[in-house]
Computed example of a mutant assay.
Amino acid sequence: METPRTGPTGEVVDAARHRALGTASRARILELVRAADSGLTIAEVGERTGLHPSTARDHLDRLVDARLLVRARASGGQPERPAWRYRVITEETPAPAPYRALAAALLDHLSRRGRGDVRAEAARVGHDWGRHLAAATPPGGKPVDTLLAVLRGLGFNPALHPTADGGTEIHLSTCPFLELVARNPDAICGLHVGVLRGALEHAGAPPSDAVLEPFGAPTACVVRLSLPPGPPSDAPGGETTTN
């Protein structure tokens, strides 16, 4: 076991992060990702640095392992898998311990199985979980209200953003499962999609209405809905803004 070291003022030095930034290339990549509002793909990093894509991927994954970056796929609601997009880790608000334990157990289960579509299996589990969480919210609310209550309970800090076409975006400015996203982004993002759709289904809305876009906004992941948001007073605790 490596003994923690301290810096000049006595703070503990994070050796993994120190090693991750031990090359000029990785330090430069981290600067580039920090400057990109919506993060960068491997191809974009390669274009900006001149590095071969496989080299850029190795550097990016080292920064993920050091918890300096997080990666996710922007599904856009489509079955195909787009490129990984990397973004700087921001301060996180942990989910309640039982929820984190449940998500961690799911990851362990899926990793042991080693077969099938991890994202789809996680989404199925999340769907049931979302229905269960929605059933515990106050009855009689609109579907968007129910979904906001579930997201607030999980620690996502959701904020409503009505769209010009009458739909709704919900910006998730914190990810309470960020440490698990670093371990298996497909599984955790799939779990979140399932929770969204399960909660909507319980509230009487079409579950396929919800699309989760990781890094869809400069400082948030974005849930896109065709449902109207309703007036601000209908969603206590969820700030409503306009685009």
Rank of each mutant, 00 (worst) to 15 (best):
G39M: 05
M1P: 00
H161R: 15
V144P: 00
V45G: 03
I188W: 05
L178F: 08
C175N: 14
G166Q: 07
R131L: 09
E2F: 12
L200Y: 02
E31K: 10
G230H: 04
A72T: 14
T242D: 04
D58C: 00
G238T: 15
D58I: 02
R115Y: 04
A187T: 10
L148F: 03
S173N: 09
A122Q: 04
S75N: 15
I89G: 06
S38I: 03
R5D: 05
S25T: 13
A199V: 11
T90H: 14
E2Q: 11
S25H: 03
V193P: 01
S38C: 11
E44M: 06
A104Y: 07
P94A: 10
V118P: 00
R67K: 10
I170D: 05
A43I: 03
V45D: 02
L51I: 01
P138S: 07
R81D: 14
T90W: 12
P231A: 12
G141A: 09
V181S: 07
D145K: 01
H171Q: 12
A134S: 11
G77A: 11
R85F: 10
D65H: 00
G194V: 07
V13M: 08
A66S: 03
T93G: 05
E80C: 08
A135L: 09
N184Q: 15
D37W: 00
A95I: 06
E2M: 11
L151N: 04
L102I: 07
A135E: 13
R183D: 13
V13P: 06
G198C: 10
D61G: 00
A66D: 04
T3E: 08
R73L: 14
S38E: 15
L212K: 12
L200W: 04
I170S: 04
E169C: 14
P158R: 03
A120R: 08
T90Q: 15
E11W: 04
R124L: 09
V193M: 02
P82A: 15
P8N: 00
L151S: 05
E169I: 13
